[in-house]
Computed example of a mutant assay.
Amino acid sequence: MVDVTEKKVTERTAIAQAYIEMSAQTLAMIVEGKHHKGDVFATARIAGIMAAKKTSELIPLCHPLMLTKIEVDIVAEPQHNRVKITALCKLSGKTGVEMEALTAASTAALTIYDMCKAVQKDMIITNIHLCEKQGGKSGSYFHNEVTK
Rank of each mutant, 00 (worst) to 15 (best):
G96P: 04
C89H: 03
L102C: 14
Q79I: 09
A108H: 01
S106K: 07
D114Q: 02
K90T: 12
A108E: 02
K90V: 12
C89E: 07
D114W: 00
M99R: 14
G93V: 00
R82D: 08
T86S: 07
M115W: 00
A87K: 03
T86N: 02
R82K: 12
S106A: 14
Q79Y: 12
V83I: 03
S92E: 15
S92W: 11
K90G: 06
L110I: 14
K84M: 10
K84E: 10
A108I: 00
L102T: 06
T95W: 00
S106E: 04
I112H: 04
G93N: 02
C89T: 13
L91V: 10
A87V: 05
K94Q: 15
M99W: 13
I112M: 11
L102N: 05
G96C: 07
K90Y: 12
T107C: 13
A105Y: 02
V83K: 00
L88I: 07
N81Q: 10
Q79A: 11
A105S: 12
I112T: 08
K94W: 05
I85G: 09
T103P: 07
L91A: 05
S92H: 14
I85H: 07
K84C: 09
E100H: 04
G93H: 01
Y113G: 15
A108T: 02
A105P: 03
S106V: 09
M99N: 09
A101W: 01
H80W: 04
L102Y: 06
S92N: 15
T107M: 13
I112R: 04
K94I: 05
